[in-house]
């Protein structure tokens, strides 16, 4: 069972995530958008959206550090377990609270503002449900697990993180996850569910984060030379070389 939950399911989800994005990018560039609803309503969005997004950026950054940086590395630079813990929990709480508050505002807005609600697809609703579950479980793990230590002390950097790195290295070790507290198990599973849904939701806009804007020239010109291959010519048709 553990093998299934913490090896098979995550890999299925990861595959769906990768292949799904490739498929969507190839076939549905036109649908690849944030689908912003700011035009309909701005008062709640102005508060909720930055709260949520900046909170999530913090949360994702925290996860990258927590999951990908081995404890031996921080030990090597003499960061004590305690000080790491304090920084991680404080940062995690702040970012998580911002994301959660933002999400509550955004979901409230989505439900109560007529035009926004009618522009909400079924996929949006499923995505919101998963997102909410993942965030709430994450907050629960932080508060209940790390601060109040309900169910005993658990150092995820010796458990979940190691499992996650083994998973990414294609040498999965399910036993590490099986011994983690239930909250962490559910959080991981729900997150993988979200990853599987990801390519089919508006969440794809995450991968269009326009960092290239910082370096590209302001005005974009396009000449026909660059333009010659928006798609392959159909079978039997050759391009005229110029």
């Amino acid at each position: 069972m553990n093998e299934f939950l913490f090896v098979v399911v995550p890999y299925i989800c990861l595959t769906t995530f990768v292949v799904g994005h490739l498929w969507r990018y190839h076939y549905d560039k036109f649908g690849w958008t944030t689908r912003s609803s700011q035009l309909y309503e701005n008062r709640l969005l102005r508060i909720g959206s930055p709260l949520f997004h900046f909170g999530m950026l913090g949360v994702v950054g925290g996860h990258i550090i927590g999951l990908l940086v081995p404890q031996s590395w921080t030990d090597a630079v003499r960061i004590s377990e305690h000080s790491y813990h304090v920084v991680a929990v404080t940062g995690g709480l702040l970012a998580g609270a911002a994301a959660l508050a933002g999400m509550v505002i955004l979901i409230y807005r989505r439900r109560t503002v007529g035009p926004v609600f009618s522009a909400t697809t079924r996929m949006d609703k499923v995505m919101y449900a998963f997102l909410a579950v993942v965030i709430v479980l994450g907050m629960w793990n932080t508060i209940a697990g790390s601060i109040m230590t309900i169910g005993g002390e658990y150092n995820y950097r010796e458990g979940v993180s190691v499992w996650y790195r083994s998973f990414l290295a294609f040498q999965p070790d399910a036993s590490l996850m099986a011994s983690a507290p239930l909250g962490f198990q559910l959080h991981a599973l729900a997150a993988f569910g979200l990853f599987a849904l990801w390519p089919f939701t508006r969440l794809v806009h995450v991968f269009s984060a326009p960092v290239g804007y910082l370096t590209r020239p302001y005005i974009v010109y396009r000449t026909r030379d660059e333009q010659l291959g928006s798609h392959q010519p159909r079978r039997g048709w050759d391009r005229i070389s110029q």
Binding site: K29, W32, T34, S36, S208, Y213, V220, Y221, R222, S230
Partner: peptide
């Protein structure tokens, strides 16, 4: 996103619908 471009041939400004991310 760099989706809005000016056509080098005739200067018409267009939005690339495949590149626009909203």
């Amino acid at each position: 996103s760099g989706a809005i471009y000016k056509r080098a041939e005739d200067g018409i400004v267009l939005v690339d619908q495949d590149k626009c991310r909203g």
